[in-house]
Design a protein around this nucleic acid. Structure first.
Lengths: 195, 195
DNA sequence: TTAACAAACTAACGCTTGTTAGGTTTTGTA
DNA sequence: TACAAAACCTAACAAGCGTTAGTTTGTTAA
């Protein structure tokens, strides 16, 4: 989110994430998005060049944030298991904070144009690579016992990303409790055979 | 799949699952589906009353199969941990066998009309309930230590369903290897604190 | 006050899509 | 073989959608 983001543009992006989550990108119309954002359909084009650009901006911002913020969270941690705990905690908290954006980013890959698709796929790969690296380090340190770290990373990410599918802001479940359960489950899972 | 399923209807359903997976339901057109199925657009209406019905039939068949076949796999197993292993193995194998159908069933919930949505949600809930029950039994038997079996069941299912997102039939990965990794990861994860 | 610019409205365009209706061809059965 | 049903083709309809172009409105600086 750059500092010079106009209020309306910001509103449109937030409403877009909500609408896309609710109906899917293709089933969402600009007329409805405009209505929800407080303008008329054609006005969207003052802020965005196309419907596709709205989707891309949501997804690109989300992936970029995930990558940079994950780094900030784990860069000073040496122990792989501790690093993994922190990474999982971060991932879940991010997905629980921006549920609409993260859900859309995870589910609307197919709606991207080819050019945008490549860019987002690249960032997904970078993000996933950070988890693979942690798992590889855990294997090296003998505190984890994973046969295929790529599959394990995918499994872990899919499971944790899944929180954005069901979590509701008004849920009685506390984020820390959810996080704790996922972290424990995963850490026992990766450590299992090395105990 | 009933015995009297006409060949063309069967082809259309298979092609629909493939097309919907590739482009999403809303971005898929009946003209393209017809083309892929070897007929013209209007001919689809000889076999299905609407585009929505095609989607519903794919999803309903998949959910119904999952429910009944899971039961058949685990009904004679008493030990909760063994039962869980079998359930996970079944789930992954099903998702790896019908990757298109399972992927569509998991991702196109939002494309369902309200009436169809309720029916599919109900079946999803039934299926999920079977996993929750296994976990509850594991807790009772003290071979699992899960604070919230509902969350754990969701996490497990999301992770295992995720296989249909990335698995490719021509993959060098053997299904048994994949299954083994998931089963081990999960069983260590659920058993962790009870060890 | 005036001019410039940003933001928004509005009508309409061109295209696409699910679907229908009527006609033709193919298949199955007596 | 004849007939009916199933399957398919085809043209077209009605609705909707992303987008464009022109106009209007509000704001700001000179």
């Amino acid at each position: 989110m750059t500092v010079n983001k106009s209020p309306r543009k910001h509103i449109i992006l937030k409403e877009a994430a909500s609408l896309f989550r609710e109906k899917g990108f293709m089933a969402s119309t600009l007329r409805e998005l405009a209505k929800r954002s407080g303008v008329q359909g054609g006005s969207i084009y003052h802020h965005f060049s196309s419907k596709q650009e709205i989707l891309y901006q949501i997804m690109d911002y989300t992936m970029t944030s995930l990558i940079y913020k994950l780094d900030a969270e784990i860069k000073d941690i040496k122990d792989p298991l501790k690093k993994l705990r922190k990474a999982i905690k971060f991932h879940i908290e991010y997905h629980v904070t921006d549920t609409d954006e993260t859900f859309v980013t995870d589910t609307e890959i197919r709606s991207l144009d080819n050019e945008n698709l490549e860019k987002i796929q690249e960032k997904r790969s970078v993000y996933e690579g950070k988890f693979i690296k942690i798992l590889n380090n855990g294997n090296s340190a003998k505190t984890m016992a994973i046969s295929n770290t790529k599959i394990a990373a995918m499994a872990i990410l899919q499971m944790c990303t899944g929180v954005s599918y069901w979590y509701k802001k008004d849920s009685h479940l506390k984020i820390d409790d959810i996080t704790e359960q996922y972290v424990n489950f995963i850490c026992w899972g990766v450590a299992g055979k090395s105990i």
